[in-house]
Computed example of a mutant assay.
Amino acid sequence: MADRYAVVTGAGTGIGRAAAQALLADGWTVAVIGRRMDPLQETIAGQARGLAIAADVGERDQVEAAFAQVKERFGRLDLLFNNAGRGAPAVDFDELPHEDWRGVVAANLDGSFYCAQAAYRIMKHQSPRGGRIINNGSISAHAPRPGAAAYTATKHAVTGLTKQIALDGRKHDITASQIDIGNAATPMTERMTRGVMQPDGSMMVEPRMDVAHVGRTVAHMASLPLDANIPFLTIMATKMPWLGRG
Rank of each mutant, 00 (worst) to 15 (best):
E72I: 03
G201C: 09
G130N: 02
L233M: 15
D180N: 15
A106V: 02
T29G: 13
G58S: 09
L226K: 11
A19L: 06
N183L: 01
P187Y: 00
F232H: 05
A149R: 00
Q69A: 05
P97T: 00
R35K: 01
M37V: 02
I179H: 13
A116G: 14
R170E: 07
P225K: 08
V218P: 01
G201S: 12
L40D: 03
G182V: 08
P199T: 13
K171T: 12
L79W: 00
P97D: 07
M203V: 03
P225S: 11
N83K: 03
H98F: 02
V70K: 12
G12I: 03
G16F: 01
A20C: 09
E190D: 10
V30S: 12
T13E: 11
I165V: 15
L243E: 14
V196F: 02
G75E: 04
W242H: 14
P187D: 02
I53E: 05
G195E: 00
I165E: 11
E190Q: 14
F67W: 14
L77N: 02
A141N: 03
T162K: 04
M203P: 05
K71Y: 12
L80Q: 04
I133Q: 06
Q117I: 02
P144Y: 09
A65L: 05
R102I: 05
T159D: 01
